[in-house]
Structures are given as structure tokens and as C-alpha cells.
Amino acid sequence: MKYRLDKSYVDTEKRKSAAMALLGLGFGVYVLFRYGVELDIKAWSGLIFLGYGYIKATDFLYWTYRSDTIAMEMVEQGVWVSTFSETRTLALENIRKVVLYPVHGEIKSVVLHCEDGSTSKVRGFASMDQIVEQLRARLGDDKIITGGFFNR
């Protein structure tokens, strides 16, 4: 089964990135107009805020135009993840443990820890419970752990 991102998750990410972009760009412009003549550390901090605002603006554009290309699928070899620029597969035999992070009884994110030390975080999909059940059926209960509040 192919899983797509939840629309409410995408909308939340778009709102967060838009707010931070406006805040960064606005504060950067303010600092440059206020302290730009002196060319001291305050003026340079305005440039840093402008750069941060630009990065968050590109995040907003990413979530606006490319979020529908993100997909995840459970295949025989493992977990298949596709974005607009790459497709990768995490082999089931390489997954060391799976950590579930519930919020108010609902699973919000799943972290896959691999044998090579890499981690992959899965969040924002509409049917996280189905994803967990498929992982539980393929890996077994001994590799699945429920994480605590402070470990997110």
C-alpha cells in the first residue's frame, strides 16, 4: 500500500515555514534599515536574519509545490520512500529497532534505527497506525519500542 502525506500536516508545515520566513525577512530588513549605516555586528546580524528568512521561504515553496510527490510504501525488500528528487529503500534486515512516539494515544512519528547507525524519521502520513501494524507484522514485536515524552 502506498502512503501519502496528510493534508493537515502539510498545511501545518506550510504555516510554520511561512511565519518564520516573514519573521526572518521582516526582522532582517528592520535591522538593516536601523543599523545598516554603521556596518557593525548588528548590521551583519540583519544579513543573517535575511538569509534565515530566505531559507524558510524556500521551505514554504517546497511544501507548496512538492509535498504531493512524497510517498512511502512497504515493499517486500523493506520500506520504500520517494521524494521529488530521490527514491530510497530501507531493507528490513538492516532495521535494528523501531521507536514509536505517541501523543495522546495517537502515533505521531516513527523512528527507524538501522544497523549502520543511520536513522529515518517517518511522520505526517495519514495512516500512521497502518504503517506501524505493517512494520510490526514484518519485524516482530521485539524490535518495536514505544518512546517516552522526553525522547522525541
Rank of each mutant, 00 (worst) to 15 (best):
Y62C: 05
I70D: 05
Y52A: 12
Q77N: 12
E76R: 04
E86M: 14
Y62M: 07
W80Q: 15
Q77I: 03
Y65S: 03
V81A: 11
Y54P: 01
Y65R: 09
R66W: 08
T83M: 11
G53R: 09
A57I: 00
D68A: 07
G78C: 03
V79Y: 01
G78P: 02
Q77D: 13
G78V: 01
M74R: 07
V75G: 04
D59M: 01
F60I: 05
Y54H: 05
Q77E: 15
D59R: 00
Q77A: 12
S85A: 13
Y62D: 13
S67W: 03
W63R: 08
F60V: 06
G78L: 03
I70E: 06
Y65Q: 03
I70K: 13
E86N: 14
G51I: 04
E76Y: 05
E76G: 08
K56Y: 14
M74Y: 01
F84N: 14
I70L: 09
R66E: 11
E73Q: 09
Y52R: 06
D59C: 00
G51M: 05
V81T: 11
G51H: 05
K56E: 15
V79W: 00
R88V: 13
T87H: 12
L61Q: 02
A71Y: 06
W63C: 10
G78E: 04
T64V: 04
D68Y: 13
T87F: 12
R88Y: 15
D68T: 08
D68P: 02
D59G: 00
V79R: 06
W80H: 15
Q77S: 14
I70C: 04
Y54N: 01
E86V: 15
A71R: 14
S67I: 00
A71M: 07
A71P: 02
L61D: 00
D59W: 02
T58P: 06
V75C: 05
S67Q: 09
E73W: 01
Q77V: 02
A57D: 00
W80D: 15
K56M: 13
L50A: 03
R66K: 13
I55S: 11
G78T: 01
S85D: 11
Y54S: 09
V75W: 00
T58R: 11
D68Q: 09
V75N: 03
V79T: 05
M74C: 07
I70T: 11
T69R: 09
G51R: 05
W63T: 06
T58M: 12
V79A: 07
Y52L: 13
I55E: 12
V81F: 07
E73Y: 02
R66F: 09
M72L: 10
V79S: 06
E86G: 10
W80V: 10
L50R: 05
